Amino acid sequence: MSAVVERGTGRTAAAVPGWAVVLWAVAGLCLALVISAIGVFTVPVGLVLVVVLLVARQGAASPAALVGAGALPLTIAWLNRGGPGEVCRVIEDGTSCTETWSPWPFLAAGVLMVAAGVALVVRARRRAARGSV
């Protein structure tokens, strides 16, 4: 991690710290879970993280929220990896069958979100390292 001099202050500041990137990703995941039943618990956590990160002046790492949010469609794609259609599994007392969706749209959305988040964070880190924040 490189240090840059903040304009007009003469102080050095971390370019875009890794901990901020991780916390923004966690906030993105918490906020993306608003569509699920556990969103009632995760959304407040995500909002608190966003406020803490903004107060700590770590907004440059905010695109990492896309990485966290992209984890949700990637998880849905993984859970539907046998689909589309009916998927049966052998269990202790016989078989269990479940109707699954096509994983491909979820995979595409997740990969695009994660790739965009990573690209934007890398760009922010390079800009911060050059001192043009």
Rank of each mutant, 00 (worst) to 15 (best):
V87L: 06
A77D: 02
A61I: 03
W78E: 00
A109D: 02
F106Q: 03
A60L: 15
G10V: 11
S36H: 08
V45E: 00
L53M: 12
R89F: 13
C97R: 11
V122K: 04
W24T: 09
T42I: 09
V40M: 10
V45K: 01
W101S: 11
V133G: 15
C30A: 15
M1F: 05
V51N: 02
C88F: 06
A77H: 01
G18L: 14
R126T: 03
A109E: 04
P63S: 07
G39D: 10
G110M: 06
N80A: 09
V51I: 10
L112S: 12
I76E: 01
I91L: 07
V4T: 15
A128I: 02
R127K: 12
A69C: 04
V87N: 04
A37K: 11
V48M: 12
A119M: 05
V118T: 03
R130H: 09
L47P: 00
W101E: 06
V21W: 03
L53P: 02
T42N: 10
V50R: 08
A56F: 00
S132P: 00
V22R: 09
P44I: 11
R123T: 04
V26S: 03
L31Q: 06
V34C: 09
A116G: 08
V114I: 10
V51C: 03
V111D: 08
A15Q: 10
S132T: 15
E99N: 04
V52Q: 09
I35W: 10
C88E: 11
A129W: 00
P105K: 13
V87A: 09
S96V: 08
F106V: 01
L47V: 11
R81W: 05
V45L: 14
R89V: 14
A129H: 03
V4C: 12
A15V: 13
R125T: 10
L120N: 03
R81N: 03
A109S: 10
S102T: 12
T95P: 01
V21T: 10
V26A: 13
A64M: 08
I91T: 14
V121Y: 02
M1L: 07
A115G: 13
L120D: 07
A37L: 15
V40E: 00
S62P: 01
V22E: 05
G8F: 08
A116V: 14
E92G: 10
N80R: 07
S102V: 03
S132D: 14
V5E: 13
A37H: 13
A128V: 01
L53R: 07
G8N: 13
A119G: 13
W78Q: 00
T95L: 08
A60Y: 06
A115N: 00
V16A: 01
A116R: 07
